[in-house]
Amino acid sequence: MKPKRQRMMLMGVAALVLVASTALGLSALGSKKQYFMTPTDLATRHTLSGENFRLGGLVTVGSVKHLADGVTLTFQVTDLQNTLPVKFRGITPDLFREGTGVIAEGHMDRAGMFVANTVLAKHDENYMPPEVAASLKKSGRWKPYGQVTR
């Protein structure tokens, strides 16, 4: 019995050390483990002009505008607290829609506009047939920025 209990003790101590060092390691990574920054993150953490970073949020409903050249579009990215204007030249993914998530990589220009080099669509955790979505919209229970509020 004794060596078995000893092994158990040893495992317990090892587990504690492991959890503590993982937590330390993760906190040392800091903001590096965030894949993108929200408009609110940018408002509180300012600067970063000219530097490349990823901006994430929801495409503001009614904000997508195609410019006259046919390949450039502008839209607003919001986290429902702060909003940032974005300019992008290129082809957006199929799931890029107003009201859904988006992650853009690029930099801020002097005028305070985010100039994106790439745009990725981020979708939420809701899956439903088109008819269900249509009936939600019809009955007025559709939430324009995702169906679940957290």
Binding site: F36, T38, G101, H123, D124, E125, N126, Q147, V148
Partner: peptide, 16 residues
Amino acid sequence: HTLHQPASIKLVGKTT
């Protein structure tokens, strides 16, 4: 913040 969406099947709460 990740590109991957959050879980649809939750430990507590309704499945989306």
